[in-house]
Amino acid sequence: MSLSPLVIAIIVIAVIAVLVLFWAVRTFNVLIRQRNQVRASWAQIDVQLKRRHDLVPNLVETVKGYAGHERATLDAVVAARAGAMAAGASPSVEQRSAAEGMLTQSLGRLFALAEAYPDLKANQNFLHLQSELANTEDKIAYARQFYNTAVQTLDNTAHSFPSMFVASIAGIRPAGYFQASGAEQAPVQVRF
């Protein structure tokens, strides 16, 4: 029994349709996994930023005890922390990055201020807080790198042909990179 050309054509079209459907579902699942990885890695950044925000008031209080008349610097740190915490509610990675950059700048000025106060530089609480903050900054840098890698992977898949069609239909948009602001790119010079 031989198959008619019409039946063969229907079978070929059905096989192609099944393969395209399989590819589309697989691509959709890959995109969803990558989007979830971006979200999870952003959550890790958020945890570390909150930890930094929690350390700042203790650091400011310690410095106040030794350099209370340096009000402008202390107020700048407090204001930058408030701005960074307010930006935490923003869905924009760029706004969050800018606010965190301002906090980093003000913390750099705070640590530079310690140069003028030898008793402060020797204070164990200050040294402990400075060490904790440096450790947290390292964790933020690592989390930022992991997040940016996840964003790059998602963006590469979402912009590649032909998976860009599935990404468009699924509503998967490119994510923003969490970039270091100009202040974070240049290392803070603090000498003890």
Rank of each mutant, 00 (worst) to 15 (best):
residue 73 T to C: 03
residue 11 I to F: 12
residue 126 F to M: 10
residue 104 T to M: 06
residue 26 R to D: 15
residue 141 A to F: 02
residue 119 D to A: 12
residue 98 A to N: 05
residue 39 R to D: 15
residue 58 N to A: 11
residue 180 A to P: 09
residue 106 S to A: 06
residue 172 I to N: 05
residue 134 A to L: 13
residue 35 R to F: 12
residue 79 A to H: 01
residue 146 F to C: 10
residue 162 P to A: 00
residue 59 L to R: 05
residue 90 S to G: 09
residue 161 F to N: 03
residue 151 V to E: 04
residue 138 D to C: 10
residue 131 S to E: 15
residue 44 Q to H: 05
residue 33 R to T: 14
residue 8 I to W: 14
residue 190 V to Y: 00
residue 15 V to E: 13
residue 189 Q to N: 15
residue 105 Q to E: 15
residue 17 A to V: 08
residue 96 R to E: 08
residue 188 V to L: 12
residue 190 V to E: 02
residue 184 E to D: 04
residue 166 V to H: 04
residue 137 E to V: 11
residue 171 G to S: 05
residue 114 A to H: 05
residue 174 P to E: 10
residue 146 F to A: 11
residue 70 E to K: 05
residue 58 N to H: 09
residue 80 A to V: 00
residue 49 L to D: 12
residue 186 A to V: 13
residue 120 L to H: 00
residue 147 Y to L: 01
residue 132 E to K: 03
residue 157 T to Q: 11
residue 21 L to I: 03
residue 143 A to D: 02
residue 68 G to D: 04
residue 86 A to K: 09
residue 184 E to T: 09
residue 149 T to R: 15
residue 122 A to Y: 10
residue 157 T to Y: 06
residue 165 F to I: 08
residue 152 Q to L: 13
residue 40 A to R: 14
residue 84 A to I: 03
residue 181 S to V: 07
residue 136 T to M: 08
residue 43 A to I: 01
residue 158 A to V: 08
residue 19 L to A: 12
residue 141 A to T: 01
residue 35 R to Y: 14
residue 138 D to P: 02
residue 190 V to S: 03
residue 5 P to L: 15
residue 89 A to D: 13
residue 80 A to E: 02
residue 150 A to V: 08
residue 8 I to E: 14
residue 32 I to R: 02
residue 27 T to W: 03
residue 17 A to S: 00
residue 105 Q to Y: 00
residue 147 Y to K: 07
residue 40 A to D: 07
residue 46 D to Y: 14
residue 170 A to W: 01
residue 133 L to D: 01
residue 113 L to Y: 03
residue 153 T to N: 14
residue 169 I to F: 05
residue 102 M to E: 13
residue 71 R to S: 12
residue 1 M to Q: 13
residue 154 L to W: 00
residue 180 A to F: 09
residue 93 V to K: 00
residue 137 E to D: 13
residue 91 P to N: 12
residue 58 N to S: 08
residue 156 N to L: 03
residue 81 R to C: 07
residue 30 V to T: 14
residue 48 Q to D: 11
residue 157 T to C: 06
residue 46 D to L: 06
residue 19 L to I: 10
residue 138 D to T: 04
residue 48 Q to P: 09
residue 92 S to T: 11
residue 145 Q to E: 06
residue 8 I to T: 14
residue 152 Q to D: 09
residue 53 H to M: 15
residue 155 D to I: 09
residue 126 F to T: 12
residue 107 L to I: 03
residue 31 L to Q: 06
residue 64 K to I: 01
residue 72 A to I: 05
residue 137 E to N: 07
residue 113 L to D: 07
residue 82 A to M: 09
residue 93 V to R: 11
